[in-house]
Simulated scan of single mutants.
Amino acid sequence: MHGEAIHLAEIERQIAATAANLRELIEQAASYSAAISEELVGQRIDDQAARLEILIRRREELLRSRAGED
């Protein structure tokens, strides 16, 4: 169970970092005017949003499995 707590803490850390990256990329996208830069930032935003969804799902699965152990 201790390992799961560490795993959950790592997922939480990754979620926070990914959400911060996403916010930063959105701010960058708002300040860029060149189409190529907008496309690149847009792709990075999509990548980070997908990563965030995966991490949130992993956290939910881990929490559900922990709730089943109680």
Results as ranks from 00 to 15, higher is better:
31 S>K: 12
36 I>K: 08
49 A>N: 01
20 A>I: 04
61 E>G: 07
62 L>K: 10
47 D>F: 09
58 R>D: 11
68 G>E: 07
65 S>A: 13
41 V>R: 02
2 H>A: 08
25 L>M: 08
66 R>C: 10
15 I>V: 03
9 A>P: 03
54 I>Q: 09
5 A>C: 13
37 S>K: 13
58 R>S: 14
62 L>P: 08
36 I>H: 07
21 N>I: 03
27 E>V: 14
22 L>V: 08
8 L>G: 05
21 N>R: 03
56 I>C: 02
65 S>W: 10
49 A>M: 01
50 A>Y: 04
26 I>D: 04
30 A>R: 01
12 E>S: 12
7 H>S: 08
34 A>N: 11
20 A>Y: 04
10 E>C: 05
28 Q>T: 00
48 Q>F: 14
37 S>N: 14
54 I>S: 08
35 A>R: 12
9 A>M: 08
13 R>M: 02
22 L>I: 08
34 A>L: 05
6 I>H: 04
48 Q>N: 12
25 L>E: 13
33 S>Q: 14
60 E>L: 09
60 E>S: 10
60 E>A: 13
60 E>W: 01
7 H>L: 10
51 R>H: 01
4 E>Q: 10
47 D>I: 14
1 M>I: 05
8 L>Y: 01
48 Q>P: 00
60 E>D: 15
61 E>H: 09
2 H>D: 09
36 I>E: 10
37 S>L: 13
68 G>V: 03
7 H>N: 07
35 A>E: 15
43 Q>Y: 12
9 A>R: 12
21 N>G: 03
67 A>D: 06
69 E>M: 14
55 L>P: 07
23 R>M: 07
24 E>V: 12
36 I>C: 06
52 L>S: 10
3 G>I: 13
66 R>L: 15
31 S>Y: 03
